[in-house]
């Protein structure tokens, strides 16, 4: 048998093993999500069955119908929760990105007193577990009357996200050569124009990815939101999931249905921004 053939076979086998390993890894990652989607379409009996039923005998939209139905018949104010989540997540993300851009740019471009200290301080805030803040936050919010308001949660999420957006965006602005802004200034831009017309578009991909992270953090956050919201007026979708638990029973099907509604916008957003991420990552202007 010739040697080339041996190597070819070896390469094929390795490739196959590679694909199998990838499949297993993806399956492990995806199964919980798929399980939720599956459960949202079938009755509780089948969900709770032991051993688990993998191939559903019947799929229907009962859980969704009930969820959008009247309160008291398994209905929950989904639209209101969705709106709350959207308002809170979008607003806090926009603010976190604006602050992150200002801060990240300052860290990337300017020298100032205490720069390293401030930066480390910001990063340290990430080391504090969010839940440990719940009681102090609750007290502060209660005193300021921000419990059960959009503003209250928006403030919390901005605070949670800003260190992270600053850190990410700082990294992206560092990759934008300083000469680009200088060239723009020589081409007639003010400092401000140079930023918006050159540095910002070039770092756009990074800023977008920081945006996704901030949005998903706010969109998915449960622990703090469950403390700081009370009523339909401000409850977000993760908190809304708890509406499906009553004293003695848990409506798993309904919970899964709401969870699916939560996942969809996040997925769509990621898909939209992903294109940006790849398209934007071309730093060809400076010698490559």
């Amino acid at each position: 048998m010739n040697e080339n053939l041996k190597h070819r076979i070896k390469a094929r086998i390795l490739k196959a093993l590679h694909l199998v390993a990838l499949f297993i890894a993806m399956a492990i990652i995806c199964v919980p999500g798929l399980w939720i989607v599956l459960n949202s379409f079938r009755p509780t009996v089948e969900i709770m069955a032991k051993p688990p039923v993998w191939i559903p005998s019947e799929l229907n939209l009962d859980n969704y119908r009930a969820m959008f139905g009247a309160v008291g018949e398994g209905g929950v104010p989904v639209v209101q929760y969705f709106t709350n989540s959207l308002i809170i997540s979008v607003t806090s993300t926009v603010i976190a990105i604006l602050v992150g851009m200002a801060g990240g740019y300052a860290f990337a471009r300017y020298r100032f007193k205490g720069k390293a200290g401030i930066f480390i301080g910001l990063m340290l805030t990430r080391a504090v577990p969010g839940v440990s803040l719940s009681l102090p936050l609750f007290i502060v919010m209660a005193k300021t009357g921000l419990i059960d308001t959009h503003v209250g949660l928006i403030l919390v999420y901005v605070a949670l996200n800003v260190p992270f957006t600053i850190w990410l965006i700082d990294g992206f602005f560092r990759q934008v050569p300083i000469e680009l802004a200088e060239a723009a200034e020589i081409d007639g831009c003010t400092r401000w124009q140079a930023f918006w017309k050159v540095e910002f578009p070039v770092a756009r991909a990074g800023i977008a990815s920081a945006g996704i992270f901030a949005f998903l953090t706010s969109w998915n956050e449960y622990a703090l939101a469950s403390q700081l919201t009370r009523s339909t007026f401000s409850k977000t979708m993760p908190v809304g999931l708890r509406d499906f638990t009553s004293e003695f029973t848990i409506n798993w099907g309904g919970m899964c249905a709401l969870a699916v509604l939560m996942i969809i916008p996040a997925l769509i957003l990621t898909f939209i921004v992903q294109k940006h991420l790849i398209a934007g990552l071309t730093f060809g202007g400076v010698k490559g």
Binding site: E179, E182, A184, D187, G188, C189, R191, G284, G285, V286
Partner: peptide, 20 residues
């Protein structure tokens, strides 16, 4: 005066073309 009011052009060592 800021660069934009000096009526000059500059070519940089690493070109500094706008990549986007």
């Amino acid at each position: 005066l800021p660069p934009r009011h000096r009526n000059i052009s500059m070519v940089f060592q690493n070109y500094a073309l706008y990549p986007h």
